[in-house]
Computed example of a mutant assay.
Amino acid sequence: MSFKSFLCVMCLSVLLVGCEQPDIASPTVSVLTEAPTDDFEKVTPDRTLHFPVDHGEHPKFKTEWWYLTANLETDQGERYGVQWTQFRIATGSEDIKGWGTPQIYMAHVVISDSNGMQHAERFSRGGIGQAGVQTSPYRIWLDNWSWQSTSEGPFPGQLSFEDNGMAGELTVLNKGEIVLHGDAGYSKKHPAEDRASYYYSAPFLQLQGKLTLNGKTVNVQGEGWYDREWSSSMLSTEQQGWDWFSIHLDDGSALMAAQIRSDDKKAYSFGSRSWPDGRVTTLSSDEIYLTPISYSTIDGKVLPLKWRIDIPSQDIKLSIGAERKQQWLPFSFPYWEGQIIAKGSHNGRGFMELTGY
């Protein structure tokens, strides 16, 4: 929702910490539904986000991610989608160096075009130099996958990765202001319970560089979206996944709309509409209507890949369709994520993430 998918957070616990997977209805929220203990800091509405420090990591909170999606094109009009995400999960709050550190990292990379996609997943325990985050100058890395900048923040940045014939070298420029979601970055995730995260985005990115997919290297350029989020207890036990949309609209604004589904209750929605000059309109749950229109079976999962987004307060009525349906990502805990096309009151392109199905 990237807000970024936490289907994979349990994978870090299971594979690197050695604990057994809990027997719960959905692995999507298995870590996020645990109530905060004294080991971790709580998300509270009175905290003010500060930059560049909040571009870095927050090891006193249990979970965190850095997330980029991009809709790119060649000079010939060939379209490519890129997703890069790095996750951090803490198994405790102790400040221990080396192999004893409680900080664990996972990273995902996906490149897709009209013919298919390639994806890769990596893991590392922190504290041994294999993965980490620093802010002066800014750098986040896992093995040879890295995002680095000469400044104290991520922009302008250089994203580099290579894995089994798939590679990217992309320069990332921020052409707008940082967007603080919810109440100045305090993003509620439940209508009644004290569940929330700190959440901000950079929706107005310009990217250019090279991609390699299936042995073919191309020059690309286009738009991107960057999300940052961290928490210690985000979701209620009744919440079983989410549907998240980020869209660059043809009037120059950017729309983020998401809903967290519950087993037997109305989904809780949240979102924002923003502009490069720093204007932001926060959208409440009763302003956003996300309606699945049709479903497709992908890798045995029945997924809503066509949607209607209605936001009457913004005069927005959109029909949403997946550019490529076969975007089920078979990571340790799988999810669907891919490019979308928006038509209706506005036209646009973006990304959709579906978890918990």
Results as ranks from 00 to 15, higher is better:
182 G>E: 08
210 K>M: 01
234 M>I: 11
194 D>W: 08
211 L>A: 01
197 S>H: 04
202 A>H: 14
216 K>G: 00
233 S>H: 13
171 T>I: 06
200 Y>W: 14
204 F>C: 00
189 K>Q: 14
197 S>T: 15
173 L>K: 06
208 Q>Y: 12
173 L>M: 09
245 F>G: 07
252 G>H: 10
179 V>D: 10
268 Y>M: 11
222 G>Y: 05
224 G>N: 03
226 Y>F: 14
209 G>S: 15
198 Y>K: 02
258 A>R: 00
187 S>Y: 07
224 G>E: 07
191 P>T: 11
191 P>S: 05
272 S>Q: 15
232 S>K: 09
222 G>I: 13
220 V>T: 08
216 K>L: 01
237 T>F: 10
176 G>Y: 07
215 G>I: 15
245 F>M: 12
236 S>E: 06
246 S>A: 13
178 I>W: 03
207 L>V: 00
243 D>K: 04
192 A>Q: 14
221 Q>C: 13
233 S>P: 00
283 L>W: 06
250 D>F: 03
175 K>T: 14
265 K>F: 04
271 G>D: 04
200 Y>V: 06
220 V>L: 05
266 K>I: 13
251 D>P: 04
202 A>I: 01
265 K>N: 10
249 L>I: 05
234 M>G: 05
209 G>W: 14
189 K>P: 00
261 R>D: 04
204 F>E: 02
272 S>F: 12
285 S>E: 10
237 T>Y: 11
250 D>T: 09
